[in-house]
Simulated scan of single mutants.
Amino acid sequence: MNKEVIVQDLGLKDYKETWDYQEELFREILDIKIKNRREDAGLDTSNYFLFVEHPHVYTLGKSGDLGNLLIAEEKLAEIEASFYKINRGGDITYHGPGQIVGYPILDLENFFTDIHKYLRFLEEIIIRTLAEYNIKAERSSGETGVWLDVGTPFARKICAMGVRASRWVTMHGFAFNVNANLGYFDHMIPCGIKGKAVTSLNVELGKPEVSMDEVKGKLLKHFKQLFEAKFVEKADIKIQ
């Protein structure tokens, strides 16, 4: 069981380019697993954790409803946004500058074989990070992701999630609003859930901007604790 995780910060990168890169790493891990099962090769599989910010983009999961995109596709260019139908679970999601997107590409057989537990751990990473900013975040029953003020008229989502898994290998992940432009959420029904607001960490703290590097360090700290992982850094990210 290889618990080493290669951490890469891709910076601001086009969604499709990043998706293709995820698929490349995903396929690399799957190919090793197939070889191990066919030939009893005993090769270790790698694990990755990618950080990225995307230019404005809307993505629709395989079970999503295109009607949850509230702007005509031909109008997207006017707001400098793109749109993709993709192969993760979940409905529609927005990504953009000021949002930390995390893509763990893991062989869960190196950690545990439980997708439900995996999703709960991803949520817990965000919840613990927000607690460090004195923000009480929660899960909302039946709604994957991380929320504030659940069960009140002021419920709002701060982190969306959607994953794909095959042979216990994961891809896609979470989108955590840190310094996000919330106006872009007006062009969609977030995750297909009507009547729920969205928020961003800087808004909750009443600050114009929160350090993205600081938040990334906290996210990695909690990932490391929960997954009992060892990090191999490929970028200048301070891991607390």
Rank of each mutant, 00 (worst) to 15 (best):
P153N: 07
K13P: 00
F49C: 06
G173F: 01
S211R: 13
W168A: 05
K62S: 08
L226G: 08
K33E: 12
G206D: 12
H54G: 06
E228A: 13
V5Q: 00
E28F: 10
G192Y: 01
I193M: 12
G102D: 05
M212S: 08
N47A: 11
Y103A: 02
F174M: 09
K207Q: 15
G195M: 12
D91N: 14
F227N: 05
V150D: 05
D107M: 07
D149P: 00
V210S: 02
G102L: 07
K157V: 01
G42T: 06
Y21R: 11
Y94D: 06
K75N: 15
G145E: 05
I115S: 09
M188T: 05
R167P: 01
G96R: 00
D91S: 05
G61W: 02
V178F: 08
H116T: 05
V198F: 09
V57I: 02
G89A: 01
E23H: 13
I92Q: 04
I32K: 03
S166G: 07
H187F: 15
E209Q: 15
G173E: 07
Y118L: 06
A229M: 09
E209Y: 14
L226Y: 01
A160S: 15
H187I: 00
N202I: 01
I126S: 03
Y58T: 00
L106Q: 04
L122S: 07
G42Y: 07
E143L: 12
W19Q: 08
G64E: 00
M188E: 02
D40Q: 11
F51W: 11
K207R: 14
M188I: 15
E132T: 01
I115R: 04
E109I: 03
M1G: 10
L220W: 07
D14W: 03
P190V: 02
R88K: 11
E228C: 10
G64H: 04
E78P: 05
G173A: 00
E123G: 13
K218D: 06
H56Y: 15
A180M: 12
F154A: 13
I6A: 08
I158C: 03
F121D: 09
K85I: 12
F111V: 08
S82L: 11
R38V: 05
P104G: 00
G206P: 03
T144K: 12
I115Q: 08
E123P: 09
K75S: 15
K33S: 11
L60I: 02
K207A: 14
D9M: 04
D20Q: 12
E123Y: 13
N134R: 07
V198S: 02
A131I: 00
G145Y: 08
S166R: 12
Q240Y: 14
R27P: 00
K218V: 08
R27S: 14
A175H: 01
K221H: 14
I189H: 05
S140G: 04
I86G: 05
N134P: 00
G217D: 03
I29C: 01
A175D: 03
K196S: 09
V52M: 08
T152G: 09
E228T: 12
Y48R: 00
M212F: 10
N68Y: 01
D14M: 07
F83C: 09
